Every structure is written in structure tokens, then in C-alpha cells.
Computed example of a mutant assay.
Amino acid sequence: MASSARRLLQTNSGQLPTAEPPSPLAVDSDVVVILAALLCALICVVGLAAVTRCARSRASPGAQAAAKGLGKKALRALPKLAYEDAVAAAAAARGGSSAAAAGEERILAECAICLSEFAPKEEIRVLPQCGHGFHVACVDTWLGARSSCPSCRRVLVVDETPKRPPEPKRCRKCEAAMKEASSSSSSGGDGAAGS
């Protein structure tokens, strides 16, 4: 019986089809397609980063300055005017005459930020470069975030007069010597001028 079973196994084993292993070419082509897609994605990301960096570097300095807000000192440097004075200042900033002031009164009818009309005694800030006027609180909030006019987007150039740095502190001996030298030079200069 054992021999017949062996024969049966040997004869039946030859009849069963055997599964072939997957071809290495099919697996390699899938890997190649995936790697090619990843490489294309990487090239696209690097290209977009380069375009973005180039666009930022070519941005005008005025656009970069407009993105930053004005400091408190610069805001205080801008004048606050009553409505009547603001109309005249707006006409002067736009290069107009007193005849144009009547037209400016129509232009300065409302604040372009809050869209409410100006009252005769309200304080208005007229921007020096373009002559547009706004409520002080409205435009100060705007200029704290960006340094351009809310109406025409012109970048503001505020002339902050640079202050001289304070003189360095000196010891009492040096200060006394400086005072003595300045008083002797002023008294010696007066005697020389009189003779």
C-alpha cells in the first residue's frame, strides 16, 4: 500500500499546475513609476519655492515698507486738524488753491474708513503726500498696521526729525572743568573784543 500511495502521489503531483513567481520586471516597473512621480513632485515644490523667493526679492521697498505699520512717534508727527483747517490742508497737499478748497470740502465729506460724515469740530488727520483725510482714531488704527493711505495706497513718508543722542554723562570733576573752560573762554573773548 505504501508503494501504491507513492505512485499515486507521484502521478498526481505532475498533473497539478504550479504557480509561477511574479516576474521581477513587473515589480521594478511599479517602483520606477512611484519614484518618477515623487521626483516630479519634488521638482514642482522646489520650483514654486524659487518663484516665491524671487517674487519676494523683487518686491519694491515701498511695498515692503507699506506692509509695516508706522510707529507711535511717526503717528504723533502727523498733524490733527479741525474740519475747516483739514479742508484747506487737503487742498494744499493736492496742490490746489482756495478755489479748489470748495471742491475739497466735497471730497472731505466722509471718512473712507468708517464711512461716517465729518462733523465741523471733529479732529481729522490729513495725510501729507496725498491729501486724503480721515478721523484720527480710524486712520491711527489703520496706520498702526500698514503705512499706506487707506484710499490711494500711497506709501507714507513721515519726516521724523532725528534727535541728537544725549551727551554722555561725565563725572563731577570733568563737568566742573568743562564749565570752568566755557566760562573762561566766554569772559576772555569779551575782554579781547573790547580792546
Rank of each mutant, 00 (worst) to 15 (best):
S147Y: 02
R76M: 15
Q129G: 07
G131H: 00
E20Y: 02
L39H: 03
L75Q: 04
V51Y: 04
I124Y: 03
R56S: 12
G71E: 13
S98L: 08
E20T: 03
R154H: 13
E117R: 11
S97Q: 12
V27H: 06
E105K: 13
A59H: 01
Y83Q: 11
F134I: 13
C54S: 14
V27F: 05
A50R: 00
A2V: 13
A177W: 00
S187Y: 00
P79S: 11
L16V: 14
A59S: 06
L35V: 02
L115A: 14
A101I: 05
E84V: 12
S185M: 05
S151R: 10
T141D: 07
C149E: 10
D140K: 15
A176N: 06
L156P: 01
P21I: 11
T11L: 15
A74V: 09
A86S: 05
L143K: 12
C130T: 04
V136W: 13
D140E: 15
D159W: 02
A88V: 02
S183I: 00
A37Q: 09
A26C: 06
D159Y: 09
I113W: 03
R7V: 14
L9D: 08
P165V: 15
A192R: 02
R146C: 11
R153F: 04
I107F: 07
K173F: 06
F118H: 01
V45N: 02
E160D: 13
T161G: 09
V32P: 01
C54H: 13
E180K: 14
A193G: 05
A145H: 04
K173W: 00
R56H: 15
S195R: 11
P24M: 07
A137D: 14
C40W: 03
S184Q: 08
K169P: 05
P162H: 12
R53H: 15
G95D: 03
E175F: 07
G188T: 02
R58W: 15
S29G: 08
A93M: 03
R53A: 15
C174K: 03
V87D: 02
Q129H: 13
P120M: 04
L8W: 15
K173C: 12
G131L: 02
E123Y: 03
A2E: 09
E123L: 08
V158R: 07
A59F: 03
C114H: 01
A112I: 12
